[in-house]
Simulated assay, not measured.
Amino acid sequence: MTVPGLPIRDDLRGLEPYGAPQLDVPYALNTNENPYPPSERLVKALGEAVMDVAGTLNRYPDRDASALREDLAAFLNADTPGVGLTGRRVWAANGSNEIIQQILQVFGGPGRTAVGFEPSYSMHPIITRVSGTRWVDAFRDEDFGIDPGRAVEAVRGHRPDVVFLTSPNNPTGTALPLEAIEAVLEAAPGMVVVDEAYAEFRRGGTPSALTLLDRYPRLIVTRTMSKAFAMAGTRLGYLAASPAVIDALLLVRLPYHLSAVTQAVARTALAHGEELLGGVEALRGERDAVVAWLRGRGLAVADSDANFVLFGTFPDRRRVWEGLLARGVLIREVGPPEWLRVSVGTPEEMAAFRTALEEVLREAPRESL
């Protein structure tokens, strides 16, 4: 709905709100959620944690989320041994999108530039533009990777204030080698943000940019509890960086931006991390199985280190998407033209996806899809 004459900012006119379709279907495989809900034991623990803070909700929460940040640092230290993080080097906010917004509020803005390599997470350019920062797409290679030489050339040519690297990448699932990240860090005059929202799903041997933090003070590594931790409804994103970066972010954070309930729920989830992350290995197995199955049917599939798979190619991907939806399976039209993305779900959900896709592919020749 529009109101004639409403004084919207000129740079926002004509833009569309971000969002995946929210449809009531039997098999929703379009938002990369963890399909395994909390156990009854964890539900009880979460309820008790909320009850513990309920009597104090007349007071503001811990403005700096100090205890939560210490817990997040402990998790990252266990996830990537040797990084030696403390709460002083971790920051948390309402989902990774607020983290991205705060980074751009501090290091971007009018007259400044951010560079990304698309196809990638669509909120990077959206939040960049909303912050008044100029967005430059440096593009990925045909295999959805990033060639270090080309990346360095783009960084030196545009001299961006912020560079976004996504590993594993969304929507392609592609992970970056540390050599590519280091090449960008050496060339970048400003901040380098490595978005690791899907890091817990990466295959064995795939490194984390957390290992580079001590050597590069302008590096920021972002994570989320929405994916592997199955806490999408909690809205908790976080980052690791140097203490100076954390201090800079304090300049733009809204007062008491993390509620007492959010902090309590997130800390409880971290305390039960072994249980919540227990489904990650199963999701990795389902991911690898669906990659093999899709390739076995002659489809192109991007290598994935995430909990989703990008596959194609279809001259009319909308027909495939609609055919699956008609059979109760919702996936995502996202990324490069002719490709589709399916989130990895439970064995039952993936069986429904395979059955539906087989029917769609039998319905019409590939060249017509």
Score class of each variant (00 low, 15 high):
M1C: 12
M1H: 13
V3N: 11
G5L: 07
G5K: 02
R9A: 11
L15H: 07
P17H: 08
Q22V: 05
L23T: 12
D24Q: 15
P38C: 07
E40P: 00
K44C: 01
K44M: 00
G47Y: 01
A49C: 04
V50P: 06
V50R: 13
A54C: 05
G55Q: 02
D62V: 08
A65H: 12
L68Q: 10
R69T: 07
A74E: 04
D79M: 07
G82W: 06
G84K: 15
T86K: 10
T86Y: 03
G87L: 08
R88E: 13
W91S: 12
G95N: 04
I100F: 15
V106N: 09
V106A: 08
V115D: 10
G116D: 12
Y121H: 09
M123Y: 10
I127K: 09
T128M: 01
R129A: 14
V130E: 14
W135T: 02
D137V: 09
D137A: 14
D143N: 15
P148V: 02
P148S: 12
R150H: 10
A154F: 00
G157D: 14
P160N: 05
P160V: 04
A175K: 04
L178C: 04
E179M: 03
E179I: 01
A183M: 13
V184P: 09
P189S: 11
F201Q: 03
G204W: 10
L212K: 11
L213Q: 07
I220A: 11
V221F: 03
T222F: 07
T222R: 11
F229Q: 05
A232P: 03
A232M: 06
G233P: 08
L236G: 01
G237W: 02
L239T: 02
V245W: 00
V252D: 11
R253M: 14
P255D: 14
L258C: 04
L258E: 14
S259P: 13
V265D: 09
T268H: 06
H272Y: 03
G273M: 09
E281H: 08
A282N: 10
L283P: 06
G285V: 01
V290R: 06
V291Q: 13
W293H: 12
R295H: 13
G298F: 04
V301N: 14
A302F: 06
F311V: 11
W321P: 08
E322L: 07
V329A: 09
P336A: 14
W339Y: 15
L340D: 11
R341P: 10
M350Q: 02
R354N: 06
A356Y: 00
